[in-house]
C-alpha cells in the first residue's frame, strides 16, 4: 500500500503505518490524519511531536500507559491522562497518534 503527496510516494503497511520512518514529514502526517478522520490541532501536534521525540530517544513507540505517564511529566497532569488523549485520538492514542507521527505500531499494543 502507499499514498502520494506532491509527487512523492509513501509506502505503508497493511494497517496504514509508514514503512520507512525517515520519510515522515508534516505533509505525510496531515494525510495520515485525514485517513484517521482527525483534524490536527496544536494539541494533536504536541502529542505527535512528543512521540517523535520519544522514538528518537528510545527507538520504540511507547505503550499507551507509558505515553500517558510521560506526557503528564512533560506537559502537565491535565494532559497526562487517558481522557485527554482519547479525546484527541478516539481510536487509541498509541495506535492513532503513533501512526500519524510515522512511528511503528507500539510493541505490546493489543
Amino acid at each position: 500500500m502507499s499514498f502520494e503527496i506532491n509527487g512523492k510516494v509513501y509506502e505503508t503497511d497493511e494497517e496504514g503505518y509508514l514503512v520507512n520512518l525517515s520519510e515522515w514529514n508534516e505533509d505525510a502526517a496531515k494525510h495520515l490524519a485525514v485517513e484517521e478522520k482527525i483534524e490536527l490541532t496544536d494539541q494533536h501536534w504536541e502529542v505527535i511531536n512528543f512521540l517523535r521525540e520519544y522514538y528518537n530517544d528510545y527507538q520504540i513507540a511507547p505503550a499507551v500507559r507509558v505515553l500517558t505517564k510521560a506526557i503528564g511529566k512533560k506537559l502537565g497532569p491535565e494532559k497526562g491522562n487517558s481522557k485527554y488523549l482519547y479525546e484527541l485520538f478516539p481510536y487509541g492514542p498509541a495506535k492513532q497518534a503513533c501512526k500519524i507521527a510515522g512511528l511503528p505500531k507500539p510493541t505490546g499494543c493489543i
Binding site: Y58, Q59, K69
Partner: peptide, 14 residues
C-alpha cells in the same frame, strides 16, 4: 541493523 540499545533506557518508564 537497528541499534536497539537505547530501548533499555526506556524500561524505567515501563
Amino acid at each position: 541493523v537497528k541499534n536497539f540499545s537505547p530501548t533499555y533506557r526506556a524500561l524505567e518508564g515501563y
